[in-house]
Design a protein around this nucleic acid. Structure first.
Length: 803
DNA sequence: CATGGTGGCATTTTT
DNA sequence: TGCCACCATG
């Protein structure tokens, strides 16, 4: 149904096709409501119709609604559906992930916390780089206290909103004390680099809301209705964030399923959903138990698996649909045979008319993709892997982007260390050490320190000059060409082209891809610097769930390709496929051996299995291997003498629902207890015949030959470079103004005194610093939140509204 | 002092 | 598989 004209949207339209509990949820009035939505029960439908109901029937302006989802993909999906329901009014809805919401708020308010509003986002690698240095400085024995233990500890602290000071107070052992110390130094280093890590996007958002009542007040006035999807996967900071915003109205609409809580390792606490009713008095609870996705047989299996969990709300999915086929099972001799089976079934189904895009292969760990990929390639089945290595995680892409980062934020010491000697230009560990020392002594960023070191070090001087050139280029060139310019001027591209390494070719192609992506980001409305910042923001928040590996999102508008989807169970949440292959149903893999000795962990593994099963609409395959290459030496409880045994979860499924396919069928073995004998006759299939056909299509490398980059020498002095590389002044950002201020009259001149809060139509909210002159020539100095420096406004022209 | 090659090693799940 | 530490060389 498409309601392009908003007036045609009626009450009945809104409720058409919804069952009773769904209607109940959609038509809920004000106040908190918890929707327990089982897998496939129409959760997204309820969420979108609820938003439409608020806008259409309750007349809520769309910019007062915040809907938080889990992934960017889910946000886009939701906005798309709402566009169909609401037309243009959907554009003003604030729909985003937790992290993007935090980023948006911090882009306006980070200066309150001592950062610049133009701070950068550090990814995992960057934070580990920072930690590494700290561990070195503190002379920590990294055998006893490995780097990962610190990043995990910091992550855990942030998930639970424990700030460094609090962590120090709580420390009760040598280890936790050390962790608290490192955490403290880490935060200081990040602040100095004007950088935030992923966790900070949430922690700092909550901090700014908690510590600055006017900021909190601003958002509370703006956002009247809040909806949260996948509520079972929220952790403490996210919960605090929502709770702060939802008060005092408490118009909070959360949707979740405790059976699908699978992010415990990230601090998600099931108690958020189990205890929601306690935290919010008079919560209305709606249960959605009718499943519209899967066959009765699949639901039966799913229920058999999940009902063994203790910590869950009691509910049972049912369907009015068909019972469906039995679940098909297969045991392979090893993971290659398992993969080959999956591949051959896919081909068989494809021949029967099933589209590749209707089939998905799910697994517990990313490592399982290798065998699957090999098999699919050999059989020439088109596929896409979600998750894993992202395009933006590729080394060459990160290297080039690090140059952009450093130009945008000269304080970004991680970016500096990444680029200073890539490609190698004679600046080794010693030189970097000298720069680091100089930086420490002068409390300046590495880049500035390097300008000083440049006086005595030729290689460093050349690097600084290079950065100066790039800075100038960044101001004049369009973004796409500028990226190309970096690749050339740094000699990154030419050097790749000269390499014999067969992977060099594809890396060059990746850089070309990056360049064309940059071209799509160009926007005449924005300054070059804004384009770069926007680009970096987007990249940081692009999750692996959003695009298949290797893709960048630039190609989304092109036709949907018909490919099999491969992804981890975690990434599969929220998706559905007519045919699902759930692979690796073995003890030690699902449940994963790391969770084996802990009840909480095991329950989460069980939910993971449940999520996998419930992705299937019509046909479900369960497969496992008898031997697996990895874990060969892992004598953990899951493995006995190298042979792998069936997952305990599979044993919970009624055997009558299972039907063996392939080898074990002919031998009478069953999936649960079978140890079929395998023949190795058809191993020859695996010869390299097809291997060579899988080569990236050649495109002629653009970066090659001799590059004459040395000719355009900068005539700039080191001192000039120093200023040139200083952080740029504050830049314009999207300004948020609550709807209620749109047509308020301007303040009288007499009302404007230092300290008075005002709103300007394009600069946003600010605070009057001083007023000079009188009458028509009066000028007002205002410090706006979104700008670093205060602005001088002529009273006559500036429309300033009192807050 | 920088660089490139070699060998050892570990490898859940992710915004 | 890919990353890091170490070592020999220029």
């Amino acid at each position: 149904m498409l309601f392009s004209d908003e007036r045609s949207m009626t009450h009945t339209d809104l409720l058409t096709g919804l069952n009773d509990p769904q209607q109940d949820a959609v038509m809920h009035g004000d106040g908190p409501i918890l929707v327990l939505a089982g897998a496939g029960s129409g959760k997204t439908r309820v969420l979108t119709h609820r938003v439409a109901q608020l806008v259409v029937e309750q007349g809520v302006p769309s910019d007062r609604i915040l809907a938080v989802t889990f992934t960017n993909k889910a946000s886009e999906e939701m906005r798309g559906r709402l566009r169909q329901l609401l037309g243009d009014r959907a554009e003003r809805l604030w729909i985003s992930t937790f992290h993007s919401s935090g980023l948006r708020i911090l882009r306006h308010n980070a200066s309150r916390l001592g950062y610049t509003n133009g701070f950068v986002i550090y990814d995992d690698q960057d934070s580990k780089g920072v930690l590494k240095q700290i561990i070195k400085e503190l002379n920590i024995n990294d055998d006893k206290y490995p780097l990962d233990s610190f990043s995990r500890a910091i992550d855990r602290a942030k998930n639970n909103y424990i700030l460094p000071a609090e962590a120090g107070k709580r420390a009760s052992s040598v280890e936790s004390d050390l962790q608290a110390q490192v955490y403290d130094r880490y935060q200081k280093a990040l602040l100095e680099a004007n950088a935030m890590d992923f966790g900070d996007l949430l922690v700092n958002t909550v901090r700014v809301l908690k510590e600055f009542p006017d900021v909190l007040d601003f958002y509370r006035r703006t956002l009247h209705y809040i909806l949260v999807d996948e509520f079972q996967d929220t952790n403490k900071v996210q919960y605090m964030f929502i709770r702060l915003l939802a008060e005092p109205r408490r118009n909070l609409f959360v949707v979740g399923d405790d059976d699908q809580s699978i992010y415990g390792f990230r601090g998600a606490t099931i108690s958020n959903i189990l205890e929601f009713e306690k935290d919010y008095a008079n919560t209305k609870v709606v249960k959605l138990e009718q499943n519209y996705r899967s066959t009765g047989r699949i639901l039966g299996a799913a229920h058999a698996v999940i009902e063994k969990n203790k910590a869950r709300k009691d509910k049972k999915l049912w369907t009015a649909g068909a019972e469906g086929d039995q679940i098909r099972t297969f045991i392979g001799y090893d993971e290659n045979m398992e993969s080959d089976f999956v591949t051959s079934e896919i081909k068989r189904l494809a021949n029967q008319g099933v589209k590749f895009s209707e089939m998905a292969i799910l697994y517990r760990t990313n490592a399982q993709t290798r065998a699957l990929e090999e098999s699919l390639v050999r059989a020439k089945v088109p596929y896409k892997i979600f998750g894993g290595l992202k395009f933006f995680d590729r080394k060459e892409v990160k290297d080039i982007l690090a140059y952009v980062r450093l130009l945008v934020n000269p304080a970004d010491n991680q970016a500096f260390q990444r680029v200073v000697n890539t490609p190698p230009r004679g600046i080794g560990a010693q030189a970097v050490q000298a720069i680091a020392e100089e930086a420490r002594n002068t409390s300046m960023p590495f880049l500035h320190a390097s300008v000083t070191i440049a006086q005595s070090n030729k290689s460093v001087k050349k690097f600084v000059e290079l950065m100066g050139e790039l800075k100038q280029a960044s101001q004049t060139m369009k973004f796409g060409s500028f990226l190309g310019c970096i690749v050339e001027k740094t000699e990154y591209g030419p050097r790749l082209a000269a390499m014999k390494d067969p992977t060099a070719q594809s890396r060059i192609e990746n850089l070309q891809e990056l360049e064309s992506l940059g071209r799509t980001m160009e926007n005449p409305q924005l300054s070059n610097e804004e384009v770069m910042k926007d680009f970096l923001d987007r990249i940081s928040l692009t999750s692996s769930a959003d695009f298949p590996a290797g893709e960048t999102g630039a190609e989304v508008s092109t036709e949907k390709s018909d490919t099999v989807s491969l992804m981890t169970l975690h990434l599969a949440k929220g998706l559905e496929f007519p045919v699902v292959f759930l692979t690796g149903l073995e003890e030690g893999l699902l449940p994963h051996y790391r969770s084996l000795d802990d009840v909480v962990g095991l329950e989460e593994e069980r939910r993971l299995c449940y999520v996998g099963i419930t992705r299937a609409m019509k046909t479900l395959y369960l497969t496992r291997a008898h031997n697996r290459g990895m874990f060969a030496s892992g004598g953990s409880s899951g493995t006995a003498g190298g042979a792998r045994i069936v997952s305990r979860f599979a044993k919970d499924i009624d055997p009558k629902s299972l039907a063996a396919v392939g080898v074990e069928r002919s031998q009478g073995a069953t999936f649960i207890e079978g140890y079929p004998r395998f023949s190795f006759d058809d191993e020859d299939d695996m010869s390299g015949e097809y291997a060579t056909t899988f080569r990236r299509k050649n495109t002629t490398p653009r970066y090659g030959g001799d590059v004459d980059s040395g000719s355009s020498k900068t005539s700039v002095s080191l001192d000039q470079l120093r200023t040139l590389l200083m952080p740029a002044d504050s830049i314009k950002r999207e300004i948020e103004i609550p709807a209620e201020y749109h047509d308020k009259p301007s303040a009288a001149l007499e009302q404007l005194a230092p300290g008075v809060e005002v709103i300007h139509p394009s600069f946003g909210r600010g605070c009057v610093e001083s007023v000079k002159g009188a009458g028509s020539s009066a000028t007002v100095f205002v410090k706006f939140d979104s700008f670093e420096e205060s602005k001088k406004l002529v009273y006559r022209f500036a429309k300033l509204v009192l807050v």
